[in-house]
């Protein structure tokens, strides 16, 4: 593989990583607060669809982004309502979200755009950072992306500060580690968890919007194609650390970009063998991480006073 190809691979790897990164950051916060949302896939699909719908309607990708974030927030709240308030099993509530997102986005897309689909979708423009994007090799990889990509990286470092070093982070961690201790300290456990679930949902919605209006331009049924699950794998692999999630998302993004290139490099090998590459990586990463993982002690457990 020559240099140009490698730069292209890494640059598109960064792009491919972003939807996963947004979803993974939201899930990191939710899980640190004890809320497990396995329904990221469904929320990302809803976000991808809403982003296209509203970008077309408003003529701006920002309108699409806002709609995707709002829709994701609503689905996160729905998850919170089921898992936090009603104490439904969190896995089952999450699976309900996957099916809901899959159905609503596919159906809504046909309803809105008919069988012919949508024509031109207003997408995010690339934001080349002046000066920096002209640096050879590093420029195209790091400084030739959509604005959203820089926002995602900033969010990862921001959260890496908030969680250990702010009062908000302290509250979130307490709720996820020992809700009883948080309750005893006068914190409304369920409210914090609802907020965390809503944040997680909104971030997954943004991840979906990135996919349909920045990475690609348009909606295809089931276009998230497992990225929601990969995002959950990233959270665990990164041991609930936001910067770790960034690294993990980049790893999966690059793997995804590589498998597409490998498909065309080796037409003799069935393409399905390459498609599974990121998932194999996820499985291996989880198997390796699971051994030493310290998950939030109250993850997935609804809090009830006794």
């Amino acid at each position: 593989m020559d240099g140009v190809l490698l730069v292209g691979l890494l640059a598109s790897g960064v792009r491919f990583a972003m939807p996963i990164l947004f979803a993974a950051l939201g899930e990191t916060v939710a899980q640190r607060a004890g809320v497990l949302n396995v329904g990221l896939e469904g929320i990302m699909l809803a976000g991808a669809f809403l982003a296209v719908l509203c970008a077309v309607a408003t003529g701006s990708p920002w309108g699409g982004l806002a709609a995707a974030a709002a829709g994701g927030l609503a689905m996160g709240l729905l998850h919170g309502l089921m898992a936090v308030r009603m104490k439904v099993d969190q896995i089952i509530a999450g699976i309900a979200l996957i099916l809901l997102g899959l159905g609503l986005s596919g159906f809504g897309y046909r309803l809105a755009f008919g069988a012919g689909g949508v024509g031109q979708v207003p997408g995010f423009a690339r934001l080349d950072i002046p000066g920096l994007s002209d640096i050879p090799v590093l420029g195209p990889i790091l400084f030739g992306h959509h604005l959203l990509a820089y926002a995602g990286v900033t969010a990862a470092f921001g959260l890496a500060w908030v969680l250990p070093r702010s009062g908000l982070g302290l509250t979130l961690r307490a709720v996820g580690e020992n809700p009883k201790a948080a309750d005893a300290a006068g914190i409304d456990v369920d409210r914090v968890r609802m907020a965390a679930a809503a944040f997680g949902g909104a971030m997954a919605g943004i991840g979906g919007a990135y996919l349909s209006t920045a990475q690609l331009a348009g909606f295809v049924e089931n276009m998230v194609a497992g990225r929601g699950f990969i995002a959950i794998a990233c959270v665990v692999f990164a041991r609930w650390n936001p910067v770790g999630a960034l690294v993990a998302a980049l790893l999966f993004g690059i793997a995804d970009a590589a498998q597409i290139r490998l498909q065309s490099l080796y037409p003799g090998i069935p393409y399905q063998a390459f498609i599974i590459l990121p998932f194999v990586l996820a499985l291996a990463a989880l198997a390796a991480a699971a051994r030493s993982a310290h998950l939030p002690a109250a993850l997935g457990r609804p809090y009830r006073r006794d």
Binding site: G167, L168, L170, R173, A174, A181, D183
Partner: peptide, 21 residues
Amino acid sequence: ALVPSFTVAETVALGRVGAGR
């Protein structure tokens, strides 16, 4: 009702500090 991963200072601060730094 303690969070094992917290320091003593964090434990005392929990529920008594604002959201900021």
